[in-house]
Simulated scan of single mutants.
Amino acid sequence: MNNVKVLLNLFVEYLQIEKSYSQYTVVNYVTEIENFASFMEEQALDHLEEITYNDTRLYLTELHKRKYSRKTISRKVSALRSFFKFLVREGKLDENPFSLVSLPKTEQKTPKFLYEKEIEKLFLVSDCKTPLGQRNQALIEILYGTGMRVSECCNIKLTDLDFHIGTVLVNGKGGKQRYIPFGSYALDALEQYIKEARNTLTSQLSTPDQHTYLFVNHRGTRLTDRGVRHILNELIKKASSTLHIHPHMLRHSFATHLLNEGADMRSVQELLGHVHLSSTQVYTHVTKDHLKRIYMSHHPRA
Rank of each mutant, 00 (worst) to 15 (best):
S267N: 08
R301V: 13
A186V: 08
A44P: 01
E49T: 14
E141V: 09
M296T: 01
I165A: 04
H164F: 12
R251E: 08
D94S: 00
G91T: 07
N54P: 00
Q192H: 09
E42H: 05
R70G: 13
G273P: 09
Q137G: 02
L205N: 02
L243P: 00
N217A: 02
R149W: 15
S203E: 15
F113C: 12
N35I: 12
T242C: 06
L214G: 04
E18T: 02
R70T: 08
T224S: 15
N171E: 14
S240M: 02
F182W: 13
F254E: 07
L48K: 01
E107M: 01
G262K: 05
S20A: 11
E62I: 03
G91Y: 09
H274L: 15
K117H: 14
E116L: 10
A44Q: 04
T106H: 09
E62A: 06
L169N: 02
Y59H: 10
R226N: 13
Q210A: 15
D289V: 02
Y283P: 08
K238W: 01
S184G: 04
H276R: 13
A302Q: 05
T167S: 14
Y283Q: 06
D264G: 02
L122G: 01
Y295M: 06
Q137L: 07
N9P: 06
N35S: 07
E50M: 04
K19E: 11
M1E: 12
P181K: 11
E116W: 09
P208E: 07
L124C: 00
M40Y: 07
G273A: 14
H47N: 08
E32A: 11
Q177L: 09
L258A: 08
H211R: 04
L291S: 01
H274T: 09
K5G: 12
L143W: 06
V6R: 14
L58C: 02
E234N: 00
F86R: 07
Q177T: 10
A239F: 05
S78H: 07
V30G: 05
H299Q: 06
Y144P: 13
L139R: 00
E49A: 10
T167V: 15
Q210G: 04
H257S: 13
I236T: 01
S240D: 02
D209C: 01
H285V: 10
V268K: 03
A255F: 09
Y68G: 01
D160K: 00
E41I: 13
L272E: 10
E120I: 07
L122V: 00
Y213K: 04
Y14P: 10
G273S: 13
N28A: 11
D264Q: 06
C128A: 08
Q108K: 07
S203R: 09
D209T: 03
